Simulated scan of single mutants.
Amino acid sequence: MRIEGSVAVVTGGGNGIGRALASGLVDRGARVVVADLDGAAAQKVADDIDARTPGSAVAVAADVSDEDRIREILARAESEFGPVDLYFANAGVAGRPGLDIDESVWEQAFDVNLRAHIRAAKLLVPDWVERGQGYFVSTASAAGLLTQIGAAAYSVTKHAAVGFAEWLSVTYGDRGVRVSCLCPMGVDTVLLHAGEESGSSLGELATRAVVSAGAVLTPEQVAEAVFAAMDEERFLILPHPEVLEMYRHKGADYDRWIRGMRRYRQSLES
């Protein structure tokens, strides 16, 4: 699907990968709604984009896990630019690490990392099927394929996000709805460092596990990987190619992989 001339929504667009996606989309000829819980951050991104390409971006401050707010974002996009063609479900939360966490932490993780994707798709897909085209890009994580040491809520909800993206593609992929699922490892964002700043030993472990597993990429490098995958309409986006080999090892011998992950956890703790 062509990006040029399209209308896009990027959630979590105020920082990190979302900011890089929004900027890169406009560079490729799209018009973008930048949505973020932090309205000031979203506005700064939109202003920076508009300074380069006037009239190409607007900002919306919103909790993108709230279906009513998603509806408002889509309406704003249509009123400013036209019907939404591309939706980047990119907003995410790390949640506090470990098992002994409050139910509210689990609820927030499920709401932002999973249910926000489901609620957006529910609003978008019927129109995309009628129009015969649309593109849903889900930001999950390598943790959704491999599990992140220390981070229970994050790993569980990112697995679920991968599962929903798969279901969406299987169910609607032959009806014009394209789906890609982004699964990076370490990316230099606020989310990467949330664990080490949590004051928890498990949180510090979670961050160490990611940064020691492979290169830490810039958000711009990840955005470029997303756009390359969209050009090919490829489902799985792996900015860290080694994730595929890790995933193959996991599938080939699940028990051996779990034993290896235990050893890896122990090496990080020592």
Rank of each mutant, 00 (worst) to 15 (best):
92 G>H: 05
231 D>H: 00
262 R>T: 03
1 M>Y: 01
26 V>F: 06
92 G>A: 15
121 A>N: 09
95 G>Y: 11
10 V>I: 00
228 A>D: 14
158 K>I: 05
141 S>P: 13
142 A>K: 04
187 V>C: 12
63 D>Y: 08
141 S>W: 07
251 G>L: 14
192 L>Q: 12
72 E>R: 09
105 V>H: 10
157 T>Y: 13
62 A>N: 02
227 F>L: 03
205 L>P: 13
130 E>V: 07
194 A>K: 07
185 M>W: 10
265 R>T: 13
176 G>C: 06
9 V>H: 00
109 A>V: 12
127 D>E: 15
131 R>D: 10
251 G>C: 11
238 L>M: 07
228 A>M: 00
259 R>L: 14
56 S>D: 05
128 W>P: 13
204 E>S: 15
246 M>L: 11
57 A>K: 02
143 A>H: 08
171 T>V: 07
183 C>E: 02
256 R>T: 15
90 N>M: 02
267 S>Q: 11
186 G>E: 04
89 A>M: 05
122 K>N: 09
269 E>H: 09
196 E>Y: 01
11 T>K: 03
215 A>M: 10
106 W>N: 11
211 V>R: 11
90 N>V: 03
133 Q>Y: 13
253 D>F: 10
133 Q>N: 04
78 E>Q: 15
234 R>P: 01
1 M>N: 03
89 A>F: 09
109 A>E: 11
132 G>N: 01
50 D>I: 08
210 V>C: 13
154 Y>P: 15
163 G>W: 07
191 L>S: 11
73 I>N: 00
216 V>L: 10
74 L>R: 08
196 E>T: 05
169 S>I: 06
180 S>D: 02
254 Y>P: 09
97 P>Q: 13
220 E>N: 09
37 L>S: 14
247 Y>E: 13
14 G>P: 14
126 P>M: 04
49 I>D: 00
190 V>G: 13
66 D>G: 08
61 A>M: 06
3 I>M: 04
204 E>C: 12
258 I>W: 09
23 S>I: 03
89 A>Y: 08
32 V>L: 00
75 A>I: 01
97 P>H: 12
10 V>C: 01
149 I>Y: 01
44 K>Y: 05
